[in-house]
Simulated scan of single mutants.
Amino acid sequence: MTSSDASTPAPSGRWSSLDRPPLVPSSLRRSLVTPAGLWTSLEVVESTGSTNTDLAARAAELPEGAVLLAEEQTSGRGRLDRSWTAPARSGLFFSVLLKPGDRVPVERWGWLTLLAGVATATALSRAAGVDTALKWPNDLLVTIGGHERKTGGILAELAADGVVLGIGLNVSLTEEELPVPAAGSLALAQAAVTDRDPLLKAVLRSLEDWYGRWLRAGGDPSESGLQETYAAGCATLGRHVRAELPGGRELTGTAEAVDAEGRLVVRTADGEREAVGAGDVVHLRAGQ
């Protein structure tokens, strides 16, 4: 074996991958935590069960705008208590604390999930050059090989006097690392950027912008432009869907609109229209 054939053993350890460098908290804070901005603190931990759980537990003592990120989540959760797992440093797993208070009626707080979807999709389209669509109510979709694949999700939970928004985004996962075949990642979608630091900055700046618009409109989804923008980017609208509702009931029809309360309006085969506020929505193929 010549010297050119020799190879150096790869370093071991969960944080050793040179393809997946750690986030740089000091740089992120300098860019995002500013006196006039929304974000008031930014903490990065190596591993935790769930950033949503951790941040919710401290919500009463923290000001609005706290951001908690984990390089790895071991018990990440999505809607309906589904698990969300990924290799360390392969994505963005973070939660933010928002406290709309009396600036927005509580009945409009449900729009925060959809707002986070709009903000994240907008940021990824601009910063990563990847067309990102929304699946009602909280999934982020990219197209890989002509098929829609879920690359991210959002979970909103009430905590103390505010809302904790959790965002999980697959960035560099390979096909072999995907938890399920229907999942995807920005890398698999041929993203122009997979460096997590600029992607995080783009998402948090977009979230700050949309949250500010929403607050200034008193949470009105129409006046803030949120309802129109969500509908424009929602891949669910116009599709034949099956809504799996609480209690085991199912509703099949065409997704026609997102109403003023953020509910998905479905028109059934007999022409009836029903607003779905909770449940799991499946995009159906023709003939299903």
Rank of each mutant, 00 (worst) to 15 (best):
P246L: 12
G184T: 04
V241P: 06
V171T: 03
G153F: 06
L207S: 04
Y230C: 04
E148T: 05
A182M: 12
G153I: 06
K150C: 12
R213E: 02
A232W: 01
L169I: 13
P181K: 06
A243L: 13
T236Y: 10
Q227D: 04
V180A: 15
Q227M: 13
Y211N: 02
A159C: 13
Y230A: 05
T151I: 15
E244V: 15
I154N: 00
G166A: 10
D195H: 10
G247D: 10
S224K: 02
L188Q: 08
E250F: 15
T143F: 01
L226E: 01
G225A: 11
L226A: 00
V171K: 00
A191Q: 04
R205D: 13
V163C: 06
L226Q: 02
L237A: 12
P221N: 03
L245H: 01
G184R: 07
V203Q: 07
E157A: 13
R239P: 08
V241G: 08
P179I: 05
E177F: 09
A232C: 11
E177R: 11
L215K: 01
L141R: 04
D197F: 06
T229F: 02
L215E: 01
E176G: 11
H147V: 13
Q190V: 12
G233D: 04
A159L: 12
R249S: 15
G225M: 07
V193L: 14
S172E: 12
E177D: 14
P221K: 00
G238Q: 11
G184K: 09
L165Q: 04
S185T: 06
G145M: 11
E223S: 13
E228P: 00
A189G: 11
V180I: 11
T143A: 14
Y230K: 00
L178E: 07
V203F: 12
A217K: 01
R216I: 00
W214R: 01
I154H: 00
Y211D: 04
G233I: 05
S206D: 02
R196Y: 12
A183F: 07
P179L: 07
T174C: 05
S206L: 08
L158K: 14
G153K: 04
T229Y: 01
L226W: 00
